[in-house]
Amino acid sequence: MKTPVQFRLNGEDVAAFAESGANLLDVLREVVGDLSVKGGCWQGSCGACTVLIDGAPRLSCLTLAESIAGRSIETAAGLRRGAELHPLQIAFMERFAAQCGYCTSGMLMAAKALLDRNPSPTREDVVEALGGNICRCTGYEPIIQAVLDAASGDRRRRA
């Protein structure tokens, strides 16, 4: 059984047929074709699949695709505006906050959710906001610093 689902993805209207019981991660990747969303565990424990649903960070692997009808989804593919990178993307680059890059989409979305609601977070706020996202490469510190850089707008702090 397939169910038609309509939602907004990075500001565009999307219609897709979702297998009943399918999760949002699979529908985004395999039906809609947004490959920026990654799966690492398919069971809600790694955070790689984090997307924003109406601005809130959600695990797409645990979200029933049928439940997002009419809602607005943001993924890493929609972060930049044309050629212009989002401040988080620039800060991640400058801080070497990605190595293999597999966790990066989820990290960026979790960080965006934080900055959208709290433009000047403390380090503790950042750690808390990224607490559900696993990175096996960087040791987290460059990621935390990148989010703080993006928040303060100070890209030169590193000297």
Binding site: T75, L79, F92, M93, F96, Q99, G101, S105
Partner: peptide, 17 residues
Amino acid sequence: PTQRQDMLGHVTGTSTY
């Protein structure tokens, strides 16, 4: 410091795994 050649792909979600 030298930027990784794959970094832009990583932060834009376009690196191909």
